[in-house]
Amino acid sequence: MSRPAPPPLTCLPLGEQPRRRLPQLFIGLALYGFSLSLMVRASLGVNPWSVLYEGLEHRTSLSFGTISAALGVLVLLLWIPLKQRPTFGTVANIVVLAYSSDLGLALLPQHLGLPARAGLLVGGVLLNGLSVAVYVGARFGPGPRDGLMTGASTATGRSLRLIRTLVELTVLALGRLLGGTVGVGTVLYALAVGPLTQFFLPWFAYGSGAGQAAGAAASAGADSLAGPPRRPRRPRPTARSEVGA
């Protein structure tokens, strides 16, 4: 079975199908935060931003989730010169990720054996790719870190890939200097999360009513251009039918 093509992922108004989209947003963000805690407990390397969170956690008395929220707010300040505007999804990203990651770290045991840690790492990366597809597909706008990258790309004219690479390498280096965990999990995350998100996204991307109506109209227009359906040709009788067999 072929996967459906995802609709555009531009931000939609908060009032469009909130009963359909809000649960998807909150579930996706909660799963994302929990996936971060899985990778942290694996102790085999985390994604670049989590490396920074871990490093700051070692140097302060703040929790992992509190640091992620504080940095999210600081990153929002960088949106101002980039002329980016936060959305409901941006604020939800900061709040839900902080609580869900701290909850996951409180529930998950520490100092596990290598097989269990490897399982946590693989599960965390898989869940992370799925959760990104879920909350991005709700179309409530970017999180603070994603908005920084898209805004910087627009302001500088550089590709999003280049900006993202530069930002994450900077964050990774700073986090490592502060004592964050870098390892095989960091590499696995970098290689796998993009393809995983792209794989899951077509099933979770919300298609707006306007987009669906436009697609139906285009389909109807194509049918009308094709003209009326042809009347099926009446089959000629065979020798058996002529004799009533």
Rank of each mutant, 00 (worst) to 15 (best):
A152H: 03
T66P: 02
S241C: 07
N128G: 09
Y53F: 15
Y189G: 00
G179I: 11
R164L: 11
G244L: 07
L36Q: 02
V46R: 02
W203V: 08
L36P: 00
P86M: 04
F88G: 05
P144F: 04
L225G: 10
G151N: 07
S61T: 15
L36H: 03
T90Q: 01
A216S: 09
G221R: 07
A118Y: 01
T90A: 00
L103G: 03
A245T: 13
A239C: 09
L174H: 05
Y53S: 14
Q84R: 10
A138F: 01
V184W: 10
V75R: 04
A173G: 11
G137R: 02
T87H: 07
T238D: 13
G179Q: 11
V46K: 00
L188C: 13
A222T: 10
P7E: 05
G209V: 14
L121R: 00
L76R: 02
G211Y: 06
T87M: 07
L162Y: 10
V46G: 05
L201H: 06
D146T: 08
G33L: 03
M39Q: 13
P232A: 15
C11A: 14
F64G: 01
H111A: 15
R21T: 02
L71N: 05
L178F: 10
E16K: 09
R19A: 14
V96E: 05
L12A: 04
R230L: 15
I67G: 01
L38S: 01
R139F: 01
V125I: 15
Q198F: 06
A192R: 04
F199Y: 15
G221E: 15
G147W: 02
V46Y: 01
I80W: 10
R145A: 12
L172E: 02
L14W: 12
P142N: 08
E168V: 08
L62A: 11
V91D: 00
S224R: 14
I67V: 13
T156A: 13
T154Q: 15
Y99G: 10
V136D: 00
A5S: 13
S153C: 13
L62I: 08
L127R: 06
L82F: 06
L178S: 02
G151R: 00
V136I: 15
R145Q: 12
L191E: 07
G72F: 02
L108C: 09
Q24D: 07
R161L: 14
I163H: 01
L76H: 01
F26E: 02
Q84H: 07
L126P: 01
L178C: 09
G211V: 07
Q17G: 06
P195K: 11
L52W: 06
G221N: 09
S153G: 15
A190L: 11
A213W: 06
P48D: 07
L25M: 09
R139D: 00
P109L: 09
A214D: 11
E54R: 04
A192V: 08
V184R: 09
R85F: 08
T165C: 14
A116E: 14
P228N: 12
P48I: 06
Q17E: 10
G183F: 00
L148F: 08
P13Y: 08
P86K: 04
I163W: 02
D146K: 02
L169D: 10
W203I: 09
E57N: 13
V167C: 13
G227S: 08
L112F: 04
P4Y: 03
Q84Y: 01
V40Y: 03
A69M: 14
